[in-house]
C-alpha cells in the first residue's frame, strides 16, 4: 500500500470539503473493496476520507411507505434490523447473504452501490424495488443509477447519503453464489407491489438490469410457469472462470422461477 493521508470528518460538509481539497481523494466506507485494491496498488489515492465519523449517514428508518437506509449502514445491520425484517424481509435476506460475517460487519450499502460490481447483490434490490438514491446534491432514481460495468450516475465527488426502498407487497431474492467469493454468479430480485412487478438481475451481465418483458408477462399472470418463456440470451451474459454464459443464462431462468414461486407460495 502506498502512503496516503487519512481524515475522518464528523460532518457531511466537512467530508465534501476534504474531498474538494484533496489532490486525488477517495471516500472510504467499509473498505472491503477499496482497501484490497489499494494493497495491490491498483488504486493510489492521495487522501482517504473516512465516512465512519458522520453519524447522519448511518441508520434505518421508516419514512412513510418507504424504508430509508443510510449509506454507511453495514450489511450486518440491514440483515438483522427489525425494521427491515418487518418492511422488506427479502432485503434483510439479501444483506444476510453477502460475502461472509467479516464482510457484512464492515461493508456498507453506499459502498456497495457506489462500486456497482456486476456480481454485487444490492444493485438487484435497488433496481428490483424501484429505490431512490439520495446524494449530497440530488436524488437519483434506482433505474438511472447503475449505468454500466462498475459505473454509476454519480459525479466526481458526489456522496451517497441514503437509499429509500419503497415497501413492496411481496419480494424475493434468489441468489446462486460463487463458492469461492460468495458473490452472485446470478441473483434475481422479484418484487410485486402497487406499481406492478419488477424483476432485476445481477451477476449475469456486466451491469444489473431489469427484465421488462418478463415483468410485463408477470403483471398479466404471476406464476412460476410464466417465467419459462423468457430468458437472457447467452450472448449478453458474462463468461468467465466461475460460470459460462450459457450457464448464467440458464440460471437466470431457474432463479427467477424460484423467486416467483416463493412469492406465490407466500414464503419469502
Amino acid at each position: 500500500m502506498q502512503d496516503f493521508s487519512y481524515q475522518r470528518p464528523a460532518a457531511l460538509t466537512a467530508a465534501i470539503e476534504a474531498f474538494e481539497q484533496a489532490e486525488d481523494g477517495r471516500f472510504l466506507a467499509g473498505g472491503q473493496t477499496l482497501l484490497p485494491v489499494m494493497k495491490h496498488r491498483l488504486a493510489t489515492p492521495s487522501d482517504l476520507i473516512d465516512l465512519a465519523g458522520i453519524s447522519d449517514l448511518e441508520g434505518i428508518s421508516i419514512a412513510g411507505s418507504a424504508l430509508s437506509i443510510g449509506a454507511m449502514t453495514t450489511h450486518a445491520r440491514v440483515a438483522s434490523a427489525a425494521e427491515v425484517h418487518d418492511a422488506i424481509p427479502a432485503l434483510a435476506k439479501l444483506a444476510g447473504c453477502i460475502g461472509d460475517p467479516h464482510v457484512r460487519n464492515r461493508g456498507t450499502l453506499g459502498g456497495s452501490i457506489a462500486n456497482n460490481d456486476p456480481a454485487a447483490d444490492y444493485p438487484a434490490a435497488v433496481a428490483g424495488l424501484n429505490a431512490t438514491v439520495y446524494t449530497d446534491r440530488r436524488r437519483i432514481a434506482g433505474d438511472d443509477f447503475f449505468t454500466g460495468f462498475f459505473e454509476t450516475a454519480l459525479e466526481e465527488g458526489e456522496l451517497i447519503t441514503r437509499v429509500e426502498f419503497p415497501v413492496a407487497a411481496a419480494a424475493c431474492y434468489q441468489k446462486f453464489d460463487d463458492p469461492a467469493s460468495g458473490y452472485a454468479v446470478v441473483g434475481v430480485f422479484v418484487s410485486r407491489g402497487s406499481q406492478g412487478v419488477r424483476v432485476a438481475v445481477t451477476g449475469a451481465t456486466p451491469c444489473v438490469f431489469r427484465m421488462r418483458d418478463l415483468e410485463a408477462a408477470l403483471n398479466r399472470k404471476f406464476t412460476p410457469e410464466t417465467v419459462s418463456g423468457f430468458c437472457v440470451p447467452e450472448e449478453e451474459c458474462n463468461d468467465d472462470l466461475h460460470a459460462t454464459a450459457a450457464y448464467r443464462s440458464h440460471l437466470v431462468g431457474v432463479m427467477a422461477t424460484r423467486a416467483v414461486a416463493a412469492i406465490t407460495d407466500g414464503e419469502m
Binding site: 461472509d100 460463487d178 463458492p179 469461492a180 467469493s181 458473490y183 472462470l241 466461475h242
Partner: peptide, 28 residues
C-alpha cells in the same frame, strides 16, 4: 470445489486468489 487452473495459452494462473480458488468452508 478446488481447482488450480492455468490458462492454456498464456500459462497464467487463473485461480491465484481466494476469490477464484474455492476452498471448502465449514458449511460445505
Amino acid at each position: 470445489l478446488e481447482h488450480a487452473v492455468y490458462d492454456a495459452d498464456s500459462g497464467q494462473l487463473l485461480t491465484a486468489t481466494l476469490l477464484d480458488y474455492a476452498l471448502p468452508r465449514a458449511g460445505d
